[in-house]
Amino acid sequence: MSDAEERKRAYRLAPCPAYDIEGTESWLEDMAEKGLVLSGDGFFAGVACFWKTEPRQLRYRLEAAPEGTGLWSGNGGLPAEEAVEINEAYGWKYVANRGQFHIYCTDDPSAREMHTDPDIQALALNIANKRARANMITALIYFMIFPLIHLRGGVLLTAVHMGSGLMLGGLLLVLIALGRTVARVLHLRRLRKRLSAGEAPHRKNWRRRALYHRRSRPIFIGLTIIWLGFFFQGWSNENLGGNIMPLEEFTGQIPFATLADMVPAGERAGVILFNPWIFQG
């Protein structure tokens, strides 16, 4: 990429979570009015990549993805070609993904709304929500619970071995992640109810909770990375023998009785082993 192209890019931290459809749509439209148009690189870890252009009036819509949006999912996370064609026929161009949503954009003010039946939109949201919940549970099992259980034969043993502070930190992170999942499910459920009631919400004041979201997300990601660092350090010490030290290098007090504590001063262990007095009682 040339320097000129690099200069045209701009990065902004999203002011709302991925599941906040109205918030994301409103924010992207406001950014376009300031001359920042979402690029095809889209979002990564909550940061959006924009092209710097002239201020424009654009409409953005987030469409719940019928299939997964991950790179390893079907079609590489892109929308189906048929969906892209139908949307393009009505003036909507696919731009990027965010979370479980495909982002479409149009500069045609007369372009037909992507969703004209709130019941059907609620149906699409439901599919995306179910998949997001399943992904979250799978991730929790594979990245946190499964390693913990298999590391030392059980959560309690792991807690004793790894340190209760680390385990408590992990527990807090899991609870925060679960809390965020619950918040997402509740948010989408409320949205589905509004859609079922015939509302078609697309505008929202995203500034109200922007500061909270922009601070809480990096903090959560940072804490998770720190926790994983400590966890894998403990894990590698355990597996690579990092916790093992030759006895002669240990300078502290050994926390259990040794042979020296049981043998009278000056005697050798070998003498005791063959002392018939011991066996005769």
Binding site: E85, I86, N87, H115, T116, Q121, L123
Partner: peptide, 30 residues
Amino acid sequence: CGIEVADFVDTKTQGEVRIGPATLYTILGK
């Protein structure tokens, strides 16, 4: 195909019922 379906509905209802592209695609999938 999908676009022909949307055109049919537009013509049949004389624009009274307009199906958006995402609505149409979701219905076809369902």
